[in-house]
């Protein structure tokens, strides 16, 4: 591709209620990152210091929704990104954090911050700066339209590379044998 003549596509990435494991997997594309940046430039991402997502071609979301701020960031991404990709188990179906969904949020907060063995004078944080936790953890497609899903906990760097290169080449992304897995 003629990188010099074609305008670069803008890509934004973020981690909501995730663990950054999917971003680490993304970095597992290793030196292919430099092939990638001939074709794209990064908007908001943990790799840049840009705080808000601007108009982008591709948005990559790691993590589900566990608090109100996650929802705001997700909506900002959806409003700005032409194509939105859910990456990893948490974004796709809530993942491990969704294991709290069969418990009441109040009982979890009470135990973790107040009643747990070994705590002295513990109290549940209620600073107005903290985003309010949601009652349940939700996958992102329950709140916005998602164009593509890459499953895995985490998906491999090769799987992420395959989807991105397919999209950049204008092909419909397809994870072939060995790249699609759920663990």
């Amino acid at each position: 591709m003629e990188a010099a003549t074609k305008p670069k596509l803008r890509v934004a990435t973020t981690s909501l209620a995730g663990c950054f494991g999917c971003h680490m997997s993304f970095l597992d594309i290793d030196e292919r990152l430099f092939d990638l940046v001939k074709l794209v430039e990064f908007d908001r991402s943990p790799l840049t210091d840009i705080k808000h997502c601007g108009p982008c071609d591709i948005g990559i979301i790691e993590g589900g929704l566990c608090n109100a701020e996650n929802v705001h960031v997700l909506r900002e991404f959806r409003a700005n990104c032409k194509t939105l990709i859910a990456i990893g188990a948490c974004a796709v179906n809530g993942g491990l954090p969704a294991q709290r969904n069969h418990l009441s949020l109040a009982s979890i907060l009470e135990e973790v911050y107040h009643a747990q063995h070994g705590l002295v004078d513990g109290f549940i944080p209620n600073d107005p700066e903290l985003p309010l936790p949601l009652d349940k953890v939700h996958p992102i497609h329950e709140v916005v339209k998602v164009d593509y899903f890459i499953p895995g906990c985490p998906p491999s760097g090769d799987a992420i590379w395959k989807v991105l290169t397919d999209l950049l080449a204008g092909r419909e992304p397809e994870l072939g044998h060995g790249l699609i897995h759920y663990d």
Partner: peptide, 14 residues
């Protein structure tokens, strides 16, 4: 000056 830990997931419990 405050550093806020904004993520709460509840691993301790679940």
């Amino acid at each position: 000056v405050r550093l806020h830990i904004v993520e709460f997931r509840g691993f301790e419990k679940f």
